[in-house]
Design a protein around this nucleic acid. Structure first.
Length: 111
DNA sequence: TTAGTGACTGTAG
DNA sequence: GCTACAGCCACTA
């Protein structure tokens, strides 16, 4: 694989593996890649997901507080909140209520 | 080529 | 308990 884009590619790959009705965090994805401190790049990569013309459920990725910080970048008709609610995830004030219950750890998929 | 930025996280004060 | 700072990697100008 191209290690140059490994980070970028892995972000998409992991994010696409997120099951419906589940969510994960930038740090969890970054940690699965091997750079938990590079969570910023995960969010940035998801920002470019549309530019790559690759379908990535970026709405299932939130910060470690369960807050939809990326909603501002998802102003494409349906918001992250609407998409997540459609999957059965309860949200209040852009924050996932049962975050621990719907949290999906990408690291388990890498085992 | 160099510098700046970014949807975050963890530690320190 | 809350606020502030530094670090991470990759892309764009």
């Amino acid at each position: 694989m191209n290690q140059s884009r490994s980070f970028f590619k892995k972000v998409y790959d992991i994010t696409r593996k997120i099951p419906e009705g589940k969510v994960t965090t930038y740090g969890a994805i970054a940690k699965s890649i091997g750079s938990p401190q590079a969570a910023r790049m995960v969010g940035w990569a998801l920002n470019k997901c549309e530019a790559e013309k690759e379908f990535v459920p970026a709405h299932r990725v939130v910060n470690r507080n369960g807050l939809l910080t990326g909603k501002l970048h998802f102003n494409k008709g349906l918001t992250m909140e609407e998409l997540l609610k459609a999957e059965g995830i309860e949200i209040e004030n852009l924050k996932i209520k049962n975050f621990e219950l719907v949290f999906w750890d990408p690291y388990k998929e890498l085992i």
